[in-house]
Design a binder for these strands. Sequence first.
DNA 1: TAAGATTGAGGATTCAATCTTG
DNA 2: CAAGATTGAATCCTCAATCTTA
Lengths: 170, 170
Amino acid sequence: MMADAAEVAVDDEVMAVSNERHLAAWRAFLNAHAAVIARIEGELAARELIPLAWYDVLVALWEAPQHRLRLSELAAAVVLSRSGLSRLIDRLEQAGLVRREPSPEDRRGAFAVLTPAGRAAQLRAWPVYAQGIQTYFAQELTEAEVDRLADCLGRVDAAARRGLPIKRLG
Amino acid sequence: MMADAAEVAVDDEVMAVSNERHLAAWRAFLNAHAAVIARIEGELAARELIPLAWYDVLVALWEAPQHRLRLSELAAAVVLSRSGLSRLIDRLEQAGLVRREPSPEDRRGAFAVLTPAGRAAQLRAWPVYAQGIQTYFAQELTEAEVDRLADCLGRVDAAARRGLPIKRLG
DNA sequence: TAAGATTGAGGATTCAATCTTG
DNA sequence: CAAGATTGAATCCTCAATCTTA
């Protein structure tokens, strides 16, 4: 199906750094993520609760000082482009879960502020979300494994964010 | 959702098992995934290589007998709805990386078949992909941790797929 | 009727361009 | 001119409806 020599050469180089076991772990990582997310999203939707993307925004706001965050900060927190976040806030604002407020000290910017309805929606979703995390994620792991996972994936996260090419904000 | 007494019971139960440490691991899982995927997609795009979704399809075909798969099987393999896969195959076919073939024994169905150009595109992308897995994922982990991660996330994946509500194929 | 696949409509996200303010 | 935010165009996904064959 292709030049044998080239194929061997590529494989050699690659195998030196990313061997079968690395690849197995990587595939497990991707598959586990896709499966668990699909499962939890499905259960939230079935109960007519907010989707995960909305939940993430509401939690980020809840945890912020005064339950408010600049739109840029929020975009970074939930890993979304600025334009994507802008439209997400549009939808949340229309649903009454969040409200925009102009910034007094920098009139270019705006805050997103959590509303009582937003907090309520977050609290309604939480039991289902928590149950999903428990059933599809934590239940399979020992307490030691949970901690180990947090540690390992924390390092992976840090590595991936390290030296980001400044920023890609649309 | 359910009777009050039961709901309270669920909350108690959930808090007992889904504590701060579970949540920390879960968040690390989500963040690491988002960050690493964004990084690798960016590097593939910067080098004008195929995106991960295309790569997944090409690998699934490469690993299949005769490098061909029914569209339904392919949809399941790459975790996409049937309609989503149908359009993805449209694009891959237009790029010449895959070709559709009607099934002789069941004329309702069709196969997706990997073309030489498709295999070549897959091989071109692989070094960059592999380097990304190495740099942002495996590099941060010891060999023991890599194996442990594969084991843990394999169990999580199995748990999430267990007893899937039959199938959701659009 | 059901199953495999495609098509139409709508949602959500991104990049590039734009507007406003620093 | 740079930075925060929004808008327009394009992409890609899903659900529901449809078409063809079993």
